[in-house]
Amino acid sequence: MGKVLKPAVNIKGTKDGLLFLLDESRPFPAVLSELKYKLENASNLWDGPDTRVCIKLGNRQITRDEEKEMRELFSTHKNLIIHTIEADHGKPYLVDDQGIQLQAGTVRSGQVLEHRGDLLLLGDVNPGGTVRSTGSIFVLGALRGLAHAGGEGDDSAIIAASSLCPTQLRIANVVSRPPDEWETSETSGMNFAYLVNGQIAVDKMHHLSRIRPDIEWKDNRFKR
């Protein structure tokens, strides 16, 4: 005692919203309990117009469960929208998502479907609608809006859709506006977009195994 600890949670206002700086030297549960305290008290301070929240973990990685716990603390203030969770070095997560998440329905104009990991959407994404994931995005339907795969920098992520006619595609931090000729190929089967040499390219689905040989399935029925 005696020494004044610097706060485990520092909150700063920026022109984009609020920045939550979490002290990396404190155990995460201690950080969470201070965060909880700060969010619960002076709660009238939080309830205002929608505000973007950026969380900086410092030099720390957290688990999914810790992330979930943290998100729950924010969920009591519906106007605080967590935009990014960042760590100083590399990925903020200890483990990557496994498997693929299934979601059904139309993503309409103004709506945002966000997901950690790979996403399979059974439905359309309309102009003005957004799907975002840290992994790949597969749309069984028409992709007419914006899709952002590899949201945290995974440049091996792909975007595939039954009908690929987006207003914009993003993979990792590369942005691409589809060239005009895309629209005509809309009916000609399933396409996917991927990153090659820092640019987004589009190709027929059956070329995927050549471009990503690591995920190619092999007929090995007789090998064992």
Partner: peptide, 12 residues
């Protein structure tokens, strides 16, 4: 297009 975009938003 513009009108449909807004209609879509409203449906949501």
């Amino acid at each position: 297009s513009a009108s449909i975009r807004d209609a879509d938003r409203v449906i949501g």
